[in-house]
Amino acid sequence: MDPFLLVGTLVCLLSAVLCIGAALLRQPPNDITILSVAAVELFLLAYAVGAVVRQVAGEPVLGEAWEFWGYLLTALVVPVGAFWWAILEKTRWSNFVLAAAGLTVFVMLFRMEQIWDGVAGL
């Protein structure tokens, strides 16, 4: 298993669990949930750097390269958008919004790995 997929899955799902947990406890977004979403964004940035390195080092995308990068750029917007949308209202529902970011990025990461390995196209 690709270490990037493993780390990404852990970061995304941990963030989602923390945010859902906080939401179930009726907490508005707090440092922990916001930082966990920041961690998702940080992972994506590391993933992007890693992807550039792999691409240059002779391990290219086997699927459509620009589809991969399209996914990655879109994914980078998700945690930022969720953060913006969540902090405008300080209720527990905003933590569900933050949780949705982690889950969405997780699904997108899965797709990106498929495209990288040339397994599937749209």
Partner: peptide, 9 residues
């Protein structure tokens, strides 16, 4: 607001 927040997200 409320659940609508998540729905819109």
């Amino acid at each position: 607001g409320g659940p609508g927040r998540l729905l819109i997200a």
